[in-house]
Design a protein around this nucleic acid. Structure first.
Lengths: 143, 143
DNA sequence: ATAGGAAATGAATTCCATTATCACTTGAAA
DNA sequence: TTTCAAGTGATAATGGAATTCATTTCCTAT
């Protein structure tokens, strides 16, 4: 994981941005919660829980910067918030968003043929809309 | 177009909602601007331009109701606003969102094979991300 | 090392889309 | 018509995100 930090630090330095403490701390939070979808507020809270005091504005600015550098991707679901997750260059994935419980299920993008059918089978997901973001009801929520 | 209004009115009545003046006026705006992607504010403004005075809260409430009745669909792009468009039961489509000029290009969902390639060709669109919402640069904006 | 200056930060403020509140009005069922 | 739940409108409240600006920090050149 230290190498992941190094890798990200290199991206920053290469793009002529400074290596600051807040940026390092935010990186750490992101790596510790890899796989999760965090909001700016989530990150801000976890920083405070760990006793680090970083301004919320800085969190927003840093997340935006990391997106520009392709360290993060920003996800917009159906609510007002933006969620962030670490960009994993190889395993690109999409999201199933359950309209009932708001669960987010990730699925890989191997095949585009029989795409929808296989997803419906695999996740027991009833697709009710098909807007390219997949919305519907997950196996726990549909009748 | 009068038949379209009738059709929508039937949906409302059938679901036991009242046929009120604000709802009728909003329907008209939507039909007059079919194919566009309108925000609540857009609709509110067009109502005022036409001399009709409908509260913004009512516009929001009506749009939400129309979405529930599948009269409208709500689209969330990369900015803070929601956009609404009339649901056309047959010709389902997706959106290409140009990160540079914010143009929105609609494309149909006929084939899932060679999906990306055909879209890239058809619209001269350089896909830079692949998050299921297609973001990138349109033919006017890429180099 | 250190001084200088640009970049970055933090606290507070502002912005803006959306939602909630609540008194008032209206559509339609009886 | 009368009745009253449903719907509306003005305004305030909310909440996420952006902005402002004075202060601090990182880094380069000396």
């Amino acid at each position: 994981m230290s190498s992941r930090i190094k890798e990200i630090e290199n991206k920053l330095v290469h793009a002529k941005f400074k290596l600051t403490t807040p940026r390092r701390l935010i990186m750490e939070i992101l790596l510790e919660n890899e796989g999760d979808h965090l909001t700016a507020e989530d990150i801000h809270n976890r920083l405070r829980e760990k006793g680090h005091q970083v301004g919320l504005a800085t969190v927003y600015r840093t997340l935006e910067l990391f997106c520009e550098l392709d360290i993060l991707s920003r996800l917009n679901f159906e609510d007002a918030s933006s969620y962030y997750e670490l960009e994993e260059q190889d395993q690109h994935h999409h999201h199933l968003i359950c309209l009932s419980c708001n669960k987010i299920i990730e699925f890989s993008d191997e095949l585009l043929e029989d795409f929808m059918e296989s997803i419906e089978k695999k996740y027991g997901f009833e697709v009710t809309d098909h807007k390219i973001k997949y919305l519907g009801y997950c196996s726990d929520c549909h009748d």
